[in-house]
């Protein structure tokens, strides 16, 4: 190896050759490069962080007008925040294009008896593999007096116990969906009507969306989903879901055809209400305006589109 090439001209009085010892200039250069590289990662993250001002500045077509007197209609803010995220410009291949609606759900936990009829209806409607080991809706049996998820029971046997209360959880179709932010290949996105969908033909199966979701709403098809031939819903994908993540779609195949979701239809107590927030006469719009509603893990700023009341 030729060492002569490494000999540089250096200023008179220099005490060390360039390249072999630590010098302040080189140290600063390396720190500068490191800072630059780190900043390259941090700056886009800062720019992408959801901010209230950005949402306010981009109201959707369906936003409700401001209330005279300076205060804003609470629904207008919610609707404005619920815009498309990573939307590729066309609906997911198994759904019709989104309309002008902004879909939302309200669940009355006082009325829920934990019968899991919503769970079964959802499994049948959405071609969930019968041996896949998951359901879109998970109903938690809770102790009265508090929301204590760590003490909640998921696999309870007896429904309707008067000393318990029941808490159904599913995909919240968040206005700021961590799952969509976390998908490395944009295989999942939020459509203009607020429904978070997954393109099963694009999902690489990395399961990062399941990591980022604070509601345990996403599930992975570890096995090829199997549904008896007579029970297959032809409007919902089946085989292509193998080895991809899936979750509640607010029954996109029904709701974009003027129907309600399967879970709402199946609920024997009417605990579930689904509708369009742009329609002031819808159940959900009325409930949000008139009742004390709350959302799960509100402090996470995911802005879920499912509210609880009770």
């Amino acid at each position: 190896m030729s060492q002569d090439k490494t000999r540089d001209e250096r200023p008179e009085g220099a005490t060390a050759p360039e390249g072999t010892t630590f010098s302040r200039r080189h140290f600063l250069t390396s720190i500068g490069i490191a800072a630059g590289v780190v900043a390259a990662g941090v700056v886009p993250a800062a720019l992408m962080a959801p901010s209230a001002s950005a949402e306010d500045a981009t109201p959707t077509a369906g936003a409700a007008p401001s209330v005279p007197g300076g205060s804003t209609d609470p629904l207008a803010e919610i609707i404005a925040a619920d815009g498309p995220v990573n939307y590729p410009g066309h609906p997911v291949h198994y759904a019709k294009p989104a309309g002008k609606e902004k879909w939302a759900m309200v669940i009355d936990v006082k009325a829920c008896v934990g019968c899991r009829k919503c769970v079964y209806a959802c499994v049948e409607e959405n071609n969930i593999g019968r041996t896949s080991g998951f359901t879109y809706i998970q109903v938690l049996e809770m102790e009265p007096g508090k929301i204590d998820l760590e003490s909640a029971v998921l696999d309870y046997d007896e429904a309707g116990r008067p000393d318990k209360w029941y808490f159904p959880v599913q995909c919240m179709h968040c206005a700021h969906p961590p799952c969509v932010y976390g998908c490395p290949v944009q295989a999942t996105w939020k459509e203009p009507d607020g429904i978070v969908v997954i393109d099963y033909n694009k999902c690489i199966g990395c399961r990062n969306c399941m990591i980022t979701c604070p509601y345990g709403a996403r599930h992975f098809n570890w096995v090829r989903p199997e549904v008896p031939a007579a029970e297959i819903n032809p409007k919902v994908p089946l085989g292509e879901k193998a080895w991809t993540a899936e979750k509640c779609t607010f029954c996109v195949q029904r709701t974009r055809n003027g129907q309600t979701t399967a879970c709402v239809e199946a609920c024997p107590t009417g605990a579930r209400k689904f509708g369009d927030l742009n329609d002031p006469n819808s159940d959900v719009a009325i409930l949000l305006k008139t009742r004390r509603v709350w959302r799960l893990k509100e402090e996470y700023s995911t802005e879920p589109m499912i509210w609880y009341v009770g």
């Binding site: 990662g41 886009p44 993250a45 992408m48 990573n86 932010y181 976390g182 998908c183 490395p184 290949v185 944009q186 295989a187 694009k202 999902c203 690489i204 199966g205 990395c206 990062n208 080895w243």
Partner: peptide, 26 residues
């Protein structure tokens, strides 16, 4: 080797999601 459909990895290059940390670490 964790990805069952490993060939879909090309989506990393075609449509990377800049808010997904996997894109940066990968």
């Amino acid at each position: 080797t964790d990805l069952v459909r490993v060939w879909r990895i090309f989506w990393f290059v075609v449509t990377p999601n800049i808010s997904a940390i996997f894109v940066y670490t990968g």
